[in-house]
Structures are given as C-alpha cells and as structure tokens.
Design a protein around this nucleic acid. Structure first.
Length: 585
RNA sequence: GGAAAUGUAGCUUAAUUUGGUUAAAGCGUCGACCUGUCACGUCGAAGACCGCGGGUUCAAGUCCCGUUUUUUCCGCCA
C-alpha cells in the first residue's frame, strides 16, 4: 500500500498514529541536526521530520540527499509540532519518519514548482506536467472539473441526454477552415474534424431524442488568441418543439445555476437587447454591461455648424467618461494616440471637458460655443467632471472604434471587476451578412438558422433586412454562447442555400443527408452551444483560457511539449497517398 | 496576411538611451557550517561565445539589415 492518508488531511486528531504517505518533495530544510521535508501531493503538504537523535542513521542519511521533486514513500508517526504553522491545514502536526523509500529520483526542475513560479510561459508549456503540479494551475483544472460536473448535473436533471457524435466527418466550405484527416482506406479522400456537431444534433432531433447535450471538442483551423484555441470544448445543446423563448429560459437557468453553485451568486437579471440596439448603444454585439458609457449619437446637435470633421459624416457618436474632466492634456493626447493606432485606425478624437464648475473646454471651441457643448452634455447624460469623447465617420467603422475605446477606458478606470457578473442576451441577429470579398451573402450564424417567420417574405425582396431567431449569451463582454431556432423545412432550407450562393448540386452534395432527413418528419427544433473554456475562464476571473486547459497550444497552434504538429515520414505519406511540396525536416 | 512587444547563467531580470577593461543581481544548484525550520539563516563555489546570420567600426550585448522564437492585437474565427 502506497499510502494510508494523503498529504492534506492529517491533523492533531491523528496524533501518535502510524501513517504511510507518498508524494513529491516540495522542499527540504537541512538544519544540520534536523531535516524537515515538505511532502506534497494534490491534497496538500505535510511536514516530515528527520532528527539526528530520533531517526535511524540509515534513514537520516537518505534524507540528507533528497532533492526537489523526488517521489518518496514514508512510514512514520504523527507528532505535534514544537512550533506550528498556521498557514497550512496540516500546520499543527508533522510526521516523524521511521522508514523512507525513494520511489523515483528527479532532475532539478527547470523552474520552481511554487505558486509564484519563476518560469516563463514558454518554459511552463514545454514542461506542462511540472506546471500542473503548481497550485494555481492545479486549482484551475479542479475548478473546470467542478463547472463541468455542475453542467452535466443540471442538464441531466432537466432531462437532456448525452449523445456522442463523430469526430471524423465531412468538410464543408462554409464557416471556419477545417482541420482535415486523410483516409487511408479511401485514397485521396479526407475527413474533416467538426467545427461543431451542428448537423448531427439536428439529426438527433429528427431521430426523436428530444433533448440532447454533449460536452464536446470542436476544431477550427483559424489563428489563435488569448481566448481562442484551435481545439476547444463546447457545451452543445439542442431541443425539440421549442421556441426561442423556451431556449432562453432553459439556458438562463443553466448559467444561473452555475453562478449560484460555483460563485454563490443568487438570482441576477439576464437582460435582453436586440442586435441592432446593442450595435447602436455599445458598438458591439457582445457588450460588457458591467459599466455604462453608452453611445449617444450627436448628428443632429453637432452637424451643420461648419466643422468639417463632423459635417457630411454618416455618424457622429460620443461616450461620456465619468470623472474624465480631470485628465491632463498628456493623458488626453495619449487617448488620441491610442485611437490612431493602426489596430483602431481612427483619424482623431474630439474631446469636451465638462468641468466641475459647470464650464466647458474642448478641442473644438472654435466651432461650438458653451451652449452647443452644454446641449451635448445634456443629451449624453454627462455630469460635471465628465469627459465627452467624440468620433465621426462611416457608421460601422466608427462604432467599432468607439467600442474599442469604451473597453479600453473601462479597463483604465477599473470598471471591469472580474468578481461582478453581468450576463446579457443579444437577440434578433440579422440572418445574413453581405460579404464584399466574395460578393455574396454569408450566414451570420450558420446556414441552418431560421428566419423570423414574419420576415419570410423579405427573403425574396430584401435579404439583408431579414432577422433571425438567433441569440447570443454575453457575459462580461465575452460571447459565451450562441444558438438559434433551426430550419426544419426542406423547402426553406433549400431557399437558404440558394441565397448563400450554393448551386442545387453543391447543396445536395454537401448537405443532401440533412435535406433528405427533413423530408421524414423533421420536428421544429433549436439549440445553443456554449464555449466551455471561455465560460470557465470568466467564472474563474481570468482573461486567458490557457491555464484552464491541461495541455493548450501556443499562439502558433503548436504543442511545444510534444512538438506537434510535425512532419510525417515517407512511408506514412505514401500509405496515405500524400505528397508534400515542402522539404521534409 | 499585417502591427507591436520580446529573446542576456538552469530560471527571473539588469546593463542597450550615450558602442570602450573581466556582462551584474536575486532565485535555483553544489560544498561547508548552523539545536525547531516552514520565503530558514551564515560563508563559499560553479554557472553566459548576450536567439541566429550578415554588416558598420580600432572596438558591438549596445548601432544597421535580414531571419527566427514567444506573447498581445488587427484581419480571420458560419
């Protein structure tokens, strides 16, 4: 038997017990006459004592040579410490060791296995198994397991059943790039890894499964970000005989129950906003509503006064920064430079200080008098001491720019408290989006999304105006989930493929199985999918998802620990009937 | 595809602005000492062709060009 107890559970209750422990050497403190060794496992740390007087010579000798991260097993007696340590759970006791076995030696680790490690990101990823021994990473993985279990429990209690769908499926040109897998038995043909189990879950509804969920890996071959990995986990859900309202209620319940179980947050509101309103008020379809600073459109108040930067522009739009009037010239210039960076790309930034004494000072005093500026302030609900910032230009770009500025200011003003949770449903997404590059409509959500029934007629006359029964759940400025009511009518689905520029043949070739299925009694259905990695990270109060994933990829999509991807050897390529243009390395 | 930041002992960083002797410190490692440590302490030692390649110069960690690593962002992510 390797152990009778773990390293986190012994206390004064176990006094004089004979125990066996196994674990890793966290640290050893050799005082010459006495050696303390901190023994660590997942559950905690227990202090071992080796004493010149009380410990056998042979055992003491081995203890002198213990290095960090050695794996050892000990047998000893629980004794009370002479000086206690209130910082750890086992701080009242220590184990006087009688028998010491080195189960495995360890090289000195390349970085310290401590809460505050000296290891950089790259090194930690290369030795991820050592990184996982550290408390912060270990706790994030435990946290993820908790969240995941809470989700399973909730959905199972609600009557959802977990069905697995295949990973080796078919490539489709819509959406993200596919990861592809060559088929040995079908030379020259390829599977694709799923970007989501979308069509399968719809087929499960047609199969009468009624309520389905799956916590499932999905794959997208696109560039990475702090909150984006090429393989990621979705909580994928679908329900039969539901309207949008049923789904919103059901999954509001899921998120609310998570907030309650995981964060102890009692019932909080899940406000709803239409896509159009979100864009108008926040310049974004995933607004962070933990803070205000909503947009106010100044076209009527600011245009026609001879200021060329505003006149003739599609949109003049402002936000009011609380307490911003006290910013120095340098700080404001800093903001102007910030919006002019290529990533934002604004030409400039107009500012108006609404001073504490009620006076105004602005960068456009030449064109606007105090009465004008006062009217802006009233319209924007600004108070004395606020700073009004104005951008103008083409509506879409300007809103995107101001939205980025709004988030940046909120960060600077510390208005994005990770312990505050503000969910928001964004509804009524447009069905389609015009793509300039390919000169055709793209599905904003995906091609299976149902148009709002009252907009069906518009499909023929003005497709861009058609709204869908599609919705996103936004949490603290992050899209954590999205879904829609699906099309279940073969004719309508066929019409959608037409609109998206599919030929009849292509539609049949790629989605014929679904169209066929629609002809055998497809019920109305709809669903939603949540990004688990992101959800867990946000609940854990972090911005990057990497430490919530045991073995993540780096920015270039590489696993630096196992060094993947890598080239295949010649035989393997031949077997798969593949040829590489690149020199093999 | 684009932008910015970045690479110096095992690790984390300094010296780069203004080119000039032997590249500095903390942690870690190793050795000695230490009668209750827990960020143990004291003393000592080893440890770096400054990411790679080229150039300018009497002289390059420092300046220039190229390349590459990692991170963050834009594009992209139905």
């Amino acid at each position: 038997m390797y152990r009778t107890h773990n390293c986190g559970e012994l206390s004064l209750r176990n006094l004089n017990n004979s125990v066996t422990l196994s674990g890793w050497v966290q640290k050893s403190r050799d005082k010459g006459f006495i050696i303390w060794v901190d023994l660590r496992d997942r559950y905690g740390i227990t202090q071992l004592v080796f004493d010149e007087k009380r410990t056998e010579k042979e055992v003491y000798k081995i203890a002198q040579n213990l290095g960090r991260e050695f794996v050892v097993q000990i047998k000893g007696t629980v004794i009370e410490r002479e000086s206690k340590n209130s910082n750890i759970d086992t701080g009242d006791i220590e184990v006087l060791v009688e028998k010491l076995t080195i189960l495995n030696k360890a090289k000195t680790p390349p970085f310290t296995i401590e809460n505050q490690t000296d290891g950089g990101e790259e090194l930690r990823m290369q030795y991820r198994y050592l990184d996982i021994r550290r408390n912060p990473v270990k706790e994030k993985l435990l946290f993820r397991s908790q969240v995941s279990m809470a989700i399973r429990n909730y959905l199972t209690d609600e009557g959802f059943i977990d069905v697995e769908t295949p990973y080796l499926i078919k490539s489709t040109p819509e959406g993200a790039r596919d990861f592809v897998v060559p088929s040995r038995m079908n030379e020259g043909q390829f599977y694709a890894l799923p970007q989501s189990p979308q069509t399968f879950k719809q087929l499960l509804m047609i199969g009468g499964m009624d309520k389905y969920f799956q916590i499932v890996k999905c794959f997208r071959d696109e560039d990475l970000r702090a909150d984006r990995q090429p393989e990621f986990t979705q909580i994928d859900c679908e329900m039969t005989f539901v309207e949008q309202e049923d789904i919103l209620t059901q999954f509001e319940g899921l998120i609310q129950s998570l907030l309650e179980k995981i964060k102890g947050i009692k019932k909080i509101p899940f406000p709803r906003i239409s896509y159009d309103d979100a864009i108008k008020k926040y310049g974004s379809d995933k607004p962070d509503i933990r803070f205000n600073m909503t947009f106010c459109e100044l076209n009527d108040l600011a245009q026609g006064k001879g200021f060329g930067v505003f006149d003739d522009q599609e949109l003049v739009v402002a936000i009011s920064v609380p307490g911003g009037a006290s910013y120095s010239r340098r700080e404001i210039d800093g903001l102007i430079d910030w919006v002019k960076r290529p990533q934002i790309g604004a030409k400039g930034l107009i500012w108006v200080k609404y001073n504490e004494d009620g006076t105004f000072k602005s960068s456009v005093d030449k064109f606007f008098n105090a009465a004008d500026l006062s009217a802006w302030a009233t319209f924007c609900n600004s108070k004395e001491g606020d700073l009004i910032l104005v951008l103008s230009g083409e509506a879409k770009t300007t809103r995107t720019q101001l939205s980025a500025l709004r988030m940046e200011l909120a960060d600077r003003l510390k208005l994005r408290d990770p312990n505050v949770f503000a969910p928001l449903w964004v509804t009524d997404f447009p069905l389609l989006e015009w793509d300039e590059q390919s000169k055709r409509y793209h599905a904003m959500h995906h091609p299976f999304t149902a148009p709002k029934p009252e907009h069906l007629e518009l499909l023929k006359t003005n497709p861009a105006a058609v709204k869908a029964n599609a919705y996103d759940l936004v949490l603290n400025g992050n899209e954590i989930g999205g879904g829609s009511i699906r099309i279940h009518d073969q004719g309508l689905q066929s019409e959608m493929f037409d609109l998206l520029g599919f030929s009849k043949e292509d539609a049949k070739k790629q989605f014929g199985f679904l169209m066929d299925a629609f002809q055998y009694g497809a019920p109305p259905h709809g669903g939603i999918a949540f990004g688990l990695d992101r959800l867990v990270a946000i609940l854990g109060g972090e911005e990057t998802i990497r430490d919530f994933i045991a073995f993540p990829k780096n920015n270039s999509g590489r696993d630096v620990m196992i060094n993947a991807p890598s080239s295949l050897d010649k035989n393997q390529l031949e077997e798969l009937a593949l040829k590489s243009n690149l020199p093999q390395t």
